[in-house]
Amino acid sequence: MSAKKSPEELKGIFEKYAAKEGDPNQLSKEELKLLLQTEFPSLLKGPSTLDELFEELDKNGDGEVSFEEFQVLVKKISQ
């Protein structure tokens, strides 16, 4: 996936994966893993990378990643 996506496209991608289980407005760690493996495969170099990335993105510590938290990752990789 190209990092150059419109905000609407990014929101659609986020919602597609977030709706798989639990809260449709939040990504669980498994949903984030699936999204990254599919859309940004070069970001995941191993299991520790996912854990570190999830911890970094989950700013409020609720165990899930909101769209706002996800946007931090998108901004970081599009620079």
Rank of each mutant, 00 (worst) to 15 (best):
D62F: 04
V65F: 11
L36M: 15
F40W: 12
E69G: 14
G12S: 10
Q79V: 05
L44I: 13
E30L: 07
E31Y: 06
A19I: 10
L53K: 09
A3C: 14
G46R: 11
T38K: 15
S2D: 15
E64N: 09
A19G: 14
E52Y: 04
E39K: 01
F70S: 01
L27G: 00
E15P: 00
S42G: 09
E31F: 04
E8D: 04
L36N: 00
K5A: 08
K20E: 04
A19M: 10
L32Q: 00
E30I: 09
D62R: 11
P41W: 04
D62L: 08
L44T: 13
V65Y: 15
K20C: 01
S28F: 01
E52A: 11
V65H: 05
G61P: 12
E31P: 10
P41A: 15
Q37W: 05
S48P: 12
L34R: 14
S6C: 01
S6H: 04
V74D: 08
S6L: 03
S66E: 14
P41H: 15
L73H: 03
P24E: 07
Q71T: 09
T38L: 06
K5D: 12
G12R: 14
I13L: 09
L53Y: 08
G63F: 04
K11I: 11
L36C: 05
G12C: 04
E15M: 14
E52C: 04
K75P: 02
E8V: 07
L10K: 01
M1D: 01
D58C: 09
P7S: 12
N25V: 06
S2H: 05
Q37M: 04
S2N: 15
F54G: 08
K33C: 06
K75W: 04
G63A: 10
Q26K: 07
G22K: 08
P7I: 10
G63H: 15
N25S: 09
D51F: 04
E9M: 09
L50I: 12
K20H: 07
E68Y: 02
K5F: 10
L32G: 03
A19F: 07
L32W: 02
E64Q: 15
S6Y: 01
A19Q: 13
D51C: 12
K5P: 02
A3S: 04
E8A: 07
Y17C: 01
L36Y: 02
V65G: 01
A19E: 05
F67A: 04
K4P: 05
Q26Y: 12
L27D: 00
Q37E: 12
L50H: 06
A19W: 04
V65A: 05
S78W: 05
L53H: 13
L73D: 00
G61A: 09
G12Y: 08
L53N: 15
Q37L: 05
K76I: 04
D23S: 08
D51S: 09
E15S: 11
D62A: 10
Q79L: 10
F70V: 03
G61D: 05
I77E: 03
E68T: 10
E9R: 02
A3R: 02
P47V: 15
K4N: 15
L10V: 05
K75F: 03
P41V: 04
F70E: 00
K59W: 14
S48K: 14
E64I: 05
K5Y: 13
D58F: 14
K75S: 09
S66C: 14
Q71M: 09
V74G: 09
S6W: 01
E21H: 10
D23Y: 05
L10M: 14
K16I: 02
K59A: 14
E21G: 09
V72K: 13
E9D: 14
F14N: 00
A18N: 01
E56G: 11
G12A: 12
G63V: 05
K29P: 13
L57E: 08
D23K: 03
S2W: 04
S6F: 07
L27C: 12
S66N: 12
G12T: 15
V65D: 00
L44W: 15
L53P: 13
K33F: 10
T38Q: 12
E68V: 12
K75M: 05
G12P: 08
E9I: 04
L27F: 01
K16Q: 04
N25K: 07
L57W: 13
K20V: 06
E31H: 10
L57M: 14
T38N: 07
K76N: 02
E8L: 09
S42N: 11
Q71F: 04
D51N: 13
F67N: 04
S78D: 15
I13Y: 06
L10F: 08
E30T: 11
Q26M: 11
K45T: 11
L53I: 14
E52F: 06
K11Q: 08
L73I: 10
T38C: 09
S28W: 01
F40H: 08
L57Q: 12
L27K: 00
P24Y: 06
N60T: 08
F40C: 07
E9L: 06
P7E: 13
S2I: 15
D23H: 06
S66T: 13
E52I: 08
S2A: 04
L35Q: 00
E15L: 13
Q71V: 07
E31M: 11
L53W: 12
L32M: 13
E69I: 07
E55L: 14
L44Y: 13
Q79R: 15
I77S: 03
Q79H: 08
E69N: 02
L53M: 12
A18I: 02
T49K: 05
L43T: 06
A19K: 14
A3I: 15
Q79P: 15
L44H: 09
Q79D: 02
K59R: 11
D23C: 06
K59P: 14
I77T: 03
G61L: 07
G46S: 10
Q79N: 03
V72I: 10
G22D: 03
L50F: 09
D62K: 11
P7W: 05
T49R: 07
E39Y: 02
N60V: 13
L44D: 13
G63R: 09
L32P: 00
S42R: 07
V65R: 03
G12Q: 07
I13C: 05
L57S: 12
F14D: 00
L73G: 08
K5H: 03
Q71Y: 03
E56T: 11
L44N: 14
A3N: 13
L50Q: 09
E55I: 09
K29Y: 15
L50W: 09
E56R: 10
S28E: 07
L57I: 15
K4L: 14
E68L: 05
P47M: 11
Q37K: 11
L53E: 13
G22Q: 02
L73Q: 01
E9N: 09
G61T: 12
K5S: 09
F67S: 05
V74P: 02
G22S: 04
D23E: 07
F54M: 12
F54E: 09
K29I: 14
E30H: 09
L35Y: 01
V65L: 14
F70H: 00
G22L: 01
Q71W: 02
